[in-house]
Amino acid sequence: MTNIHVVWLQGQGCTGCTVSFTNATHPSLADLLTGFIAPAEGVILDFHQTIMLPWGEQAIQVLDEAQEGQLDPLVVVVEGAIPDESTARETGGFWCLSGEKDGEPITFSERVDRLSEKAALMVAAGTCASYGGIPHGRPNPTGAKGLLDYLGRNWKSALGIPVVCVPGCPVHGEHLAEILAHAVLAVREVLPLPELDKEHRPVHIFRHTAHENCPRAGLFADGKNSHEFGEPNCMGLLGCKGPIAHCDAPKRGFIEGVGGCTTVGSPCIGCTEPEFPDRPYSPFLAKAPASFFIVEKIHGIGGSLGAVWSRIKRRKI
């Protein structure tokens, strides 16, 4: 079985997605590295700035090898947004560097350009890498973009696979570990590639909103709202954006089932969405747009009437 090489690049990020990745359990980072079961064996993490042993030239040499196609098949995981270096060049500078070659600094965007030519799969870990995240927040001083817009929505890898986005600020560790394991199994034809939604998120993880996944959604349906932080009801009046953000953390929890933003009683801030951290997700403590609630209430009334009617009807099963 051929080894699969993973290069993890960090651009305008905060390393939070790396830290979050180490929160994963099934599989864990260690599982992925040791190859927890035969078809998932042989995943080599060739480059990851935060955990690798070598530094300086020896570290950068790995990226050069990857760019020359020596690491094949190559999975590139990107963490952090990609700035527009043309604006920094106007004053002779740079926004973000990624090592050097023959004494010349290499910008992060150049690194992404070169590696994306060789990659079998490009995975955007977290909202910055997917859609730009906070660096691209208004007024976007560095012209930051996510991989999806940077490479273009029609971009395809050498194997014909589009950019896979696993958003979240930070990425949910389990989402990323599952998608990477899934990708490895897909490359080896054990599983099909995951289906993606229009924002290139895996549908099976991001189909439902945080509100739909929220343990407090039943309380909302029952008309129970929290008016102060600390109360155990729906936080819709306290700024929760769960109804307009796609996320399963309220159901799944954040680390081994513990946590989940709305689960513990804090408002969802929409960190998995392309517009984050701008409107309509911020101000974070302002109420979500009303239109959603009107539509939802109409659906809710329809659903309730249907449920009542089906209970009145004669049992048919």
Binding site: P170, F229, G230, M235, I255, V258, G259, V264, G265
Partner: peptide
């Protein structure tokens, strides 16, 4: 290290980037 972050997620919803700090206290149902 994960256990430490799990303790933070227990009260903070998640970690990295805890979600429960608000002006005037915390937003969690203790």
């Amino acid at each position: 290290a994960k256990l430490g972050r799990k303790m933070a997620a227990l009260l903070g919803g998640k970690h990295p980037h805890v979600n429960t700090l608000v002006p005037g206290g915390v937003a969690m149902t203790l």
